[in-house]
Computed example of a mutant assay.
Amino acid sequence: MRGLMCDGDPARLINLWEAADLAIVVDAAYAHPRHPGRFHRLNLDGGQLSQTGSATSSHGLGLGDAVELARELDRLPGQLVVYAIEGANSSLGVGLSAPVAAIVEPLTDRIAKEIAQHVGSASSR
Rank of each mutant, 00 (worst) to 15 (best):
D7I: 01
P36T: 00
S54C: 15
A88I: 03
G46I: 05
V26G: 02
A88K: 13
V81Y: 05
L63R: 04
S97L: 06
L107T: 08
N15K: 13
I111L: 08
H118D: 09
G87R: 01
H59Q: 11
S123D: 12
G95C: 03
L80N: 01
N15V: 01
C6Q: 03
Q117I: 02
K113W: 09
R34N: 04
Q117D: 15
V94K: 11
I115D: 05
L4V: 15
V25F: 10
A101G: 02
V94Y: 14
D7Y: 06
G8Y: 02
A55D: 10
E114F: 02
A66H: 02
G53I: 00
S90N: 11
L63V: 03
A20F: 01
F39R: 01
R75L: 08
V100N: 02
P106T: 07
D45H: 12
L73Q: 14
S97M: 09
P10C: 11
H32V: 12
L42Y: 03
L22C: 08
I85Q: 09
L42F: 03
R41N: 04
R75T: 08
W17D: 09
A84R: 04
E105N: 07
A20E: 15
T52W: 04
L22A: 00
G120R: 14
A88H: 07
P99W: 11
L13Q: 06
G62T: 04
G87P: 04
V67Y: 04
G3C: 11
A28L: 05
S91N: 10
R71C: 06
T56V: 15
D65H: 13
Y83G: 00
A122F: 09
H59L: 13
A122C: 09
A84I: 04
G78P: 00
V26D: 10
G62Q: 04
A122P: 00
L16M: 05
A70M: 11
F39C: 00
V119C: 07
H59T: 13
P106V: 04
R110M: 09
D109W: 07
N15M: 08
K113L: 14
L92H: 10
L76N: 07
K113V: 14
L44I: 12
L69A: 08
S124E: 12
V104S: 01
G3L: 13
N89V: 05
V67E: 06
A55F: 06
G3R: 13
I85H: 01
R75F: 07
E86P: 03
T52Q: 15
G37L: 03
V82C: 06
